[in-house]
Structure formats: C-alpha cells, structure tokens
Amino acid sequence: MEEALGFPKLFALAEDNGLTLPRARKGPHKPGVKLLLREKRLLVGRREVPLEGSGRAFDLMVLLAEGPLPWQEAGRRLWEEDGEEVRKRLHTTASRVRDLLADREAVRWRGEVLELDPERRWVVV
C-alpha cells in the first residue's frame, strides 16, 4: 500500500523526462466463465471465485447462460413469483454477479430483458 502512493510521482518523473507510460492497459479479452452445477462453483478464467450468500447470483448466471430472458420469467424461475419486489431482487442479484466477476457488464438489462455479457464465453457443466 505504501508503494502505491509513490506511483503518481513515478509517472510524473517519467513524463518530465519525455517518457509517457500507459496509465492502464485493458486485457486482450474477457476470461470465460465456467459454472459447475454439481459443486456449485464459479471459475473465471483459471481462478475460482468464492461464492457466499444465498447462491441466487450463481443461479441467475446458470439461468441466463441458456439465453436472454424477460425479467418476469427470470423472477418466476428463481423465486416462483414475479412483481415489483422480484424486479428489485433481480437488480440486487445482477449487481452481485457483477461484483463476483468484477465486471459491470456481466449482466445487462436491455429494456425488460436480462442477458449475460456476450463478449464472454459462458459454460455450464
């Protein structure tokens, strides 16, 4: 943590000497996601992401891996009900998926339809 405080000074020193350094580099691609149903495990690329809580985020990823769904249908499949309360739960659950994958585009709302990020490869086994 202490070293991180020195990075702005290092970048400034480099720029003062005519060297421009990239501030951040985007990865070449988004790692694939593997959802292991039997063990209820989540693998992103080569790393395992720990799952905690009710498991609804995992269930939502499995559900949406089949294809986009209207939010009412997703709610019925996850909670056996729909309505405004379920819509709020889906927003919270989608946020949890985004947190697990550290990607704000992991779950997308397209009007009334939920979908997984098509730039990733999603595999359910």
Rank of each mutant, 00 (worst) to 15 (best):
G32T: 09
D99F: 14
L78G: 03
K30M: 08
R41A: 04
E2H: 10
L51V: 04
E105L: 07
K9W: 03
R87Y: 11
P31E: 03
W79S: 08
K9R: 04
F7G: 07
K30D: 09
D82P: 11
H91E: 12
P28S: 12
E2F: 05
E3P: 06
R76Y: 11
V125W: 14
L19G: 00
G53M: 02
G67Y: 07
L37A: 14
G53Y: 03
G6N: 12
G32S: 14
G53S: 01
E39K: 09
L51C: 05
E73F: 09
E2A: 06
P22L: 09
E80S: 14
H91S: 07
G32Q: 13
R77P: 03
P28E: 14
L5A: 14
A65G: 09
L19V: 09
D99G: 14
V86F: 09
V123I: 15
F11T: 06
P70C: 04
E80G: 10
K9E: 07
A106D: 06
R38Y: 10
V97S: 00
W109T: 05
E80F: 13
L10P: 01
E85D: 15
G6S: 11
L43G: 00
V62Y: 00
G32R: 13
R110S: 15
D16K: 06
V49R: 03
G83K: 07
V86Q: 06
K26L: 07
V107Y: 01
R76P: 03
R76L: 11
E48K: 00
L5F: 13
P22R: 10
A102E: 12
D82E: 15
L35V: 08
R38C: 07
G18W: 02
R25S: 15
G55N: 10
